[in-house]
């Protein structure tokens, strides 16, 4: 095993008793210390994948190793390393924040360490609420408690299943801070999210899962570079009624009542002499007697990339 891969998923498939195949032959390596974002539409298999790794769901075939430990045979060693923050807000309604977080630590076999629990609660702004019963907390606070529970046993790998679903913007920013802080301490983080913004902001690598298949795993920057489309918008001096025949209409559109000309190109064609074709376009425009007063370019966001990826027919 490559020691940089803290989790290795090999040929993992899962078919539920209902016959629904949630995972199809997944291979995935998670590197030590990275933030890995798993993106995918609802029902794509994100939660099933996490659940199999964490031991909540039995795999139909394939295997998972966590720091070299098979997660079925050596489940104790494997699970000790993992903290899991589930998607659903679940809790023992009547116990206090302090008790439930301490319970998690003990359940994972670690001796009591009030100082550690205090650090965890403080970092999640839960210290003032430590004596509150969970039932009295807001949804956002309960989410923090679940994170605190997952961190109570000092895991080296943290799974966050939709950590910021239904959480307000401020709290989301707070959580990103917490996650970054954990990464700085060397914790490997795997998160699933619906918020592309979150993956774009946080992740080192991104995996896209669609109908149980891992369709893509890529460095975030590389992904955005390769799949990102760019657009050049030219503000014209004089409006055009229609595109001159001399121009390639497939890559150009008129907008703003003919005031603007939009040129779309692939950022991934970088490397040629004129990869974007911009120089050529400008020369053609000049020849056609079309002049512009301003221009700007923009790159598509991860969200657009993602939507394009999951739209493609399987």
């Amino acid at each position: 095993m490559n020691e940089h891969n803290v989790i290795r998923v090999e040929a993992l498939s899962k078919t539920y008793d209902s016959g629904f195949q949630a995972l199809k032959d997944i291979d995935l390596d998670i590197r030590h210390g990275e933030i890995f974002a798993l993106l995918g539409p609802n029902g794509a298999g994100k939660t099933t994948l996490i659940s199999v790794i964490c031991g909540l769901v039995n795999a139909s075939s394939g295997r998972v190793r966590v720091a070299g430990h098979d997660n079925v045979v050596d489940y104790r060693q494997a699970r000790r390393l993992i903290g899991l923050v589930p998607q659903e807000l679940t809790s023992e309604a009547f116990s206090t924040v302090w008790d439930t977080v301490s319970f998690s630590r003990g359940l994972f076999g670690k001796p009591k360490d009030p100082a550690h629990i205090e650090r965890v609660l403080t970092s999640l702004s839960l210290w003032d609420k430590r004596r509150n019963r969970l039932i009295t907390l807001s949804g956002g606070m309960k989410r923090r408690v679940l994170i605190a529970k997952a961190l109570a046993h000092e895991p080296e790998i943290l799974f966050l299943d939709e950590p910021t679903a239904g959480v307000d913007v401020e709290l989301r920013r707070d959580m990103w801070e917490v996650v970054r802080g954990l990464r700085e301490r060397g914790v490997t983080i795997i998160l699933t999210t619906h918020y592309i913004e979150e993956a774009e902001e946080m992740a080192d690598r991104i995996g896209v899962i669609r109908a149980g298949e891992l369709v893509l795993v890529e460095e975030k920057r590389e992904l955005m570079r390769k799949l990102g489309r760019k657009q050049l918008t030219l503000q014209l001096r004089e409006p055009l009624e229609r595109l001159p025949d001399s121009l390639d209409a497939s890559r150009l559109t008129l907008a703003d009542d003919g005031q603007a000309l939009i040129y779309t190109y692939d950022a991934r064609t970088n490397g040629d002499d004129d990869p974007s074709g911009i120089a050529e376009l400008l020369a053609e425009l000049d020849a056609a007697g079309i002049h512009f007063k301003d221009l700007h370019t923009r790159q598509s966001s991860l969200e657009e990339i993602f939507v394009n990826l999951v739209r493609e027919a399987p």
Binding site: L56, R76, A78, R80, P86, E88, T90, L107
Partner: peptide, 17 residues
């Protein structure tokens, strides 16, 4: 109760036999 509330996930993911 933990099955009903969903908090059983923690026990199932813990390093316990």
């Amino acid at each position: 109760f933990p099955r009903f509330s969903g908090s059983i996930y923690e026990i199932l993911s813990a390093p316990v036999s």
